[in-house]
Amino acid sequence: NLPDAEEVVAITEASLSGDEVSHGNDSSLGMSWSKVLRVRTIQISSPILAEKSPFFYKLFSNVTRESKQQNVTLQIHDSEEAAVMDLLNFMYSNTLSRTTSAAVLDVLMAADKFEVMSCIRYCSRMLGLM
């Protein structure tokens, strides 16, 4: 019982920058000490994400704010951006475009964060072969 198949996920990138607290328009508590660098909006299928990742499944199905929103925001550190994009691609295609060990390691971190088991296994196997 997930919401619409096409979900808009806005990825907000923030950097943790010490005491530099942004007092911007973002009222959510979590944002209080980070600065939003840029917002990227992508159209993505929520059932696919939910199927691959318990995090996304719970994100869409719990009674929290997100379950009622069309646009769901995912806030990540700027250093994670490339890895998260790769992870989202992987969930659609089951392959990774960047195969350097550093890149795969970053994807592995992201996959672990969102519990995408298929990707965790994939990255581990790749790293084992290197």
């Binding site: 959510s28 508590l29 979590g30 209080s32 000490w33 995090f55 719970k58 994100l59 719990n62 009674v63 929290t64 704010r65 997100e66 379950s67 009622k68 769901v72 925001t73 995912l74 806030q75």
Partner: peptide, 28 residues
């Protein structure tokens, strides 16, 4: 700071106010 956010969220959940919380933020 982070724990305060989560603790507040747990109170809200017990008080039936979960719909105002952001799952993504709390998970993060």
């Amino acid at each position: 700071k982070t724990w305060e956010i989560l603790k507040h969220a747990i109170h809200e959940i017990y008080n039936h106010n979960a719909s105002g919380l952001s799952f993504e933020e709390l998970y993060r």
